[in-house]
Structure formats: structure tokens, C-alpha cells
């Protein structure tokens, strides 16, 4: 069974009352956190004129489109159309929602009907996300200690010490995004430098 949950970001990078762009297997998503902290992932398109909702603004428990200010509530239904303040928007104006959970400091997305939980990542702490212009094969070539496809794991040398790392792979139009975690207690600055070095080596392999 294919893993349907995809990591689309780290919790630490999405504060309250902020929206950001996310992806699930080629689907563009608007991932946003309400003022109270509730996390949601929606189709990244306002049904009115197709504007990306990830450019929108959060007010309280709602996300509004930046183009005409259409307001969408927690269920994805349109709650308010500023051009017609007295109108109750028809229930048919709705943004499709994806499943979205936060676990181990990672934001995971999957189609709405997905059951089960994402892979558990015990003993690891979120590090940072990084984008690469190569494929997973190049990453494994650059760091043979890593194994896996959608989840790369392994024991690598960071600052002269063996350290467990986990790279959650997100495929994009122009390459990869890796959401990196490292062992709890590891030197985060050294691990971040290792990750940047891995990118240089992987992109060189990818280009070769």
C-alpha cells in the first residue's frame, strides 16, 4: 500500500493566522492555521475567479481570498462576499478540503477520505525544509547511508558524530523539497550545515 500522507511543511514554519502554499502529489494546496491554531489544507483555488488561496489572509477562524475578500469558514464553505454584504452565500460555494494532520512537528496532507495516520517519527526533532533541483536517486548517491523513497532515513556523520536523520520527500514541479528531522539532542546547527552540504553534493550528482 502506497503511503498516501505527504509531508508539506514543518509546524514551526506555519505560525497562527498565516497561510502558505502546500502540495500533495501535484495538487496545489493552501495550508493555513487559524488564530486559535486550527490547521487546514484546502484546494489552492478560490471558486470565484481561480485566485490562489495560499495568498489569502487569515482572520480569526476564517481564510479570505486576497482578490475579492471572499471569506471561507472552517468547513471550506463561503461565509461572506464583501461585494454583497447582505447576501448569504449559497452553500454550493465551497473549497475542497484535504486531510491535514500535525505529528512530530510535521504537517502532513492526504486526500480527504484517507484513513490511518502518517508514519511515526519517534526520537526525532524537526530541523528545517530545503529544496533541491534533483531527484531522490541523486540524494541517495550523495549519501549512501540513506535509504528509502518517500522517507529517507539513516545514520550519518554530523560534526564527527553518528546522528540519525530522516528526510521526508515532497515532489514538486522543478525538483524536491526535503523536510528534515534529526535525532533529539543533536547539534541542530551542524545538522543544518550537513543538510546544505548534502544538497550541493546531490545536485552535483543529479547534474552529472
Amino acid at each position: 500500500m502506497t503511503q498516501r500522507w505527504t509531508a508539506t511543511g514543518l509546524s514551526q514554519d506555519l505560525p497562527k493566522a498565516v497561510a502558505m502554499a502546500g502540495h500533495w502529489q501535484g495538487h496545489d494546496l493552501a495550508v493555513w492555521r487559524s488564530a486559535s491554531g486550527r490547521l487546514q489544507a484546502w484546494n489552492d483555488r478560490c471558486p470565484h475567479r481561480g485566485m490562489r488561496l495560499s495568498h489569502g489572509f487569515v482572520r480569526g477562524e476564517t481564510l479570505a481570498c486576497i482578490y475579492h475578500g471572499w471569506v471561507y469558514g472552517a468547513d471550506g464553505g463561503c461565509k461572506h462576499i464583501p461585494a454583497h454584504p447582505a447576501l448569504t452565500p449559497p452553500a454550493t460555494i465551497r473549497v475542497a478540503a484535504f486531510a491535514c494532520v500535525e505529528q512530530d512537528g510535521v504537517i502532513w496532507v492526504a486526500p480527504a477520505e484517507t484513513v490511518g495516520a502518517p508514519v511515526a517519527l519517534r526520537g526525532l526533532q524537526p530541523l528545517r525544509s530545503i529544496s533541491l533541483t534533483c531527484d531522490v536517486v541523486a540524494v541517495r548517491l550523495a549519501e549512501p547511508a540513506l535509504s528509502g523513497d518517500d522517507v529517507l532515513r539513516g545514520l550519518v556523520q554530523i560534526g564527527g558524530q553518528a546522528c540519525e536523520v530522516c528526510l521526508l520527500v515532497q515532489h514538486g514541479a522543478s525538483g524536491l523539497t526535503l523536510h528534515a528531522l534529526c535525532a533529539v539532542g543533536a547539534d541542530r546547527i551542524a545538522a543544518s550545515r550537513w543538510l546544505e552540504d548534502l544538497r550541493r553534493r546531490a545536485e552535483r550528482k543529479g547534474a552529472a
Binding site: 496545489d28 489552492d44 483555488r45 475567479r49 481561480g50 485566485m51 490562489r52 495568498h55 486576497i66 482578490y67
Partner: peptide, 8 residues
């Protein structure tokens, strides 16, 4: 900034 972010 709007026109370059409308889909399609």
C-alpha cells in the same frame, strides 16, 4: 500579483 496567481 493577482494575475500571475490565477488558476488556470
Amino acid at each position: 500579483s493577482i494575475l500571475e496567481n490565477q488558476i488556470p
